[in-house]
Every structure is written in structure tokens, then in C-alpha cells.
Design a protein around this nucleic acid. Structure first.
Lengths: 129, 129
DNA sequence: TTACCATCTGTAGCAACTACAGACTCAAGA
DNA sequence: TCTTGAGTCTGTAGTTGCTACAGATGGTAA
């Protein structure tokens, strides 16, 4: 499997695949005579894992930990659970922050009377108190 | 007003103030004999504006536009309103994305039976389909 | 053969800061 | 007066997670 095929199979850009290799998330594959990367099914599995975790919003550092943990099948999965729960809390905080911000921005926009900039409540709100 | 005071008054880091100057958001102030930056009240007003806009989640590019617009007081404030509304839509999209992601992550976590990694549904979910 | 694509390495760019290093200025205390 | 500590200066490099080149090969089809 060449890098383009692997990238295609995982909806990843070729550059991103190489990037994951560079930062040590994806092990360096064998090379063809022409120095092309030759991937196997284990690479496909690992990259799928990475992509899915990234889609769920895990940072690359979290993905790295999840990969390490998932490599030792006999361990209890508490650590995995902990990482996921921490991430969930993180998302909840972000949603709360964004929602609060939305409320405020909505209020600011609602105050606009569509006159000149001099009278604009949006601009006024942004200025010094 | 020295840079530290200005930074303090606007809850900004000194480095960030210098950064805003470097990228042209904040005009270069006069200098003291010792080459220290000497700010006036117009700088305070402008930096307050920037900070407030940033707190509302506007990008620096949007802030730049808002500043340009707010400098011409006689213009209609439609453009200002448009930037704010675009940003609101952006926030709504982000909240929706995060909420969807949260639902899925919650489902993944809920499937964990707290056994070994080999049986872990979280790890399984992340693997290839 | 010639065109065109994929692949290779290495480097630089994006947002929006943040964190140094190494030199200076300034005010207060012993 | 000397010294100590804090603030300031410039310039550069780091952060996250890629993305986009440039310039050189390799592989394939008309």
C-alpha cells in the first residue's frame, strides 16, 4: 500500500500521514526499491485509530497516550476511560464558554440601530467602559 | 503610561501588547529618553477595544476590520453589523459541532465496562470498522 | 518519447500568542 | 554610594496540527 492509497482509505492528506510519522504517531513503514513508503494493514488500523480519535476531538498528545495504552491489551482500561472523561469535561467547558459568548454577542448585535458608526452600539460596546 | 501599566489596565500580557504593535493593530507609541514605550489614553481605548473584541471571539483579522470601520464615524454601521453576524453564525456552528461530538464521545464512554484494554469498548470504537 | 501524475525530502507558513536570552534602565533600601 | 530587584528593550524560537510549497525522482499511459 502506497502513501496515497493509505491516505485515501483514511480520508487523510498525504502530508498529514508523513507528519504523523515524523512525530512518532505512525511507525515508519518499509520502503520499496524506489524509496516509496510501503504500508501494511497494521498501519491502516493504527491510522484509522488516530483519525477517529482526532475526529472525536482528542489532541495528538491524548491520541499518543491512547495508542500506548491500547498496545497493552492486558492492562485495565481505567486509564483509557480517564482520558476520555477528561476530554468530555473539556468539551463541556468549551460548549459552556461558547454559549455564554454567544449570548453576549447576540445582545451586542441586538442593540444595533443601523445608523452611522458614530451611533453604533456594537462599536460602543467594544470601546472602553 | 508604560507598557506594564497599559497591560495591567487591560488584562493583557506585555508581550501581547508588543505583538499587537508588531502586527499593526496598535499604533507605535512615543518613546521616553530611555526608549520605553509611552502610551496615551487613545492607546488604552484602542487596546480595550481589541481585548473586548477578542473576548467575544473575533479573530484578529476581524478586529482589524472593526477598528478600521470604527475609525470612520460617519459611515453606516452595516459593515460592523455584518461582521458581528457572521461571527455569530460561526459560533453557532462551533457549538453545534461540539455538541454533536459530545454526544458521540458520551456514547463511547458509556460503553466502557471497566475490564482490560483487550475488552475495552472505547479502544474498540477507535479501531478500524 | 513525452506528458503527467505520485512520491520523495526539507523547509516555511498559518493563528495568536508565549517564552525565552541577553542587554538596558530605574527606583528603593543598606 | 552601591546594590539588588523589577521593569523594559530587541530579537528569536516555541506552541498545535497541520498545510503548502520547492525541487528532485519514479512510474505509467498514449
Amino acid at each position: 500500500m502506497k502513501i496515497g492509497e493509505l491516505a485515501n482509505a483514511t480520508a487523510t492528506k498525504v502530508e498529514t500521514v508523513r507528519y504523523y510519522e515524523k512525530i512518532g504517531l505512525l511507525p515508519p513503514p518499509a520502503r520499496t526499491a524506489a524509496n516509496y513508503r510501503a504500508y501494511g494493514s497494521e498501519h491502516l488500523a493504527r491510522l484509522s485509530f488516530i483519525r477517529r480519535a482526532r475526529d472525536l476531538g482528542f489532541t495528538l498528545e491524548a491520541v499518543r497516550e491512547l495508542l500506548t495504552l491500547s498496545d497493552d491489551k492486558s492492562q485495565p482500561c481505567e486509564a483509557v476511560d480517564a482520558i476520555a472523561r477528561t476530554h468530555l469535561i473539556d468539551i463541556d467547558r468549551k460548549v459552556a464558554d461558547l454559549t455564554a459568548l454567544r449570548t453576549e454577542l447576540d445582545k451586542v448585535i441586538g442593540s444595533c440601530r443601523h445608523g452611522t458608526v458614530a451611533e453604533c452600539k456594537i462599536v460602543e460596546t467594544l470601546g472602553p467602559r
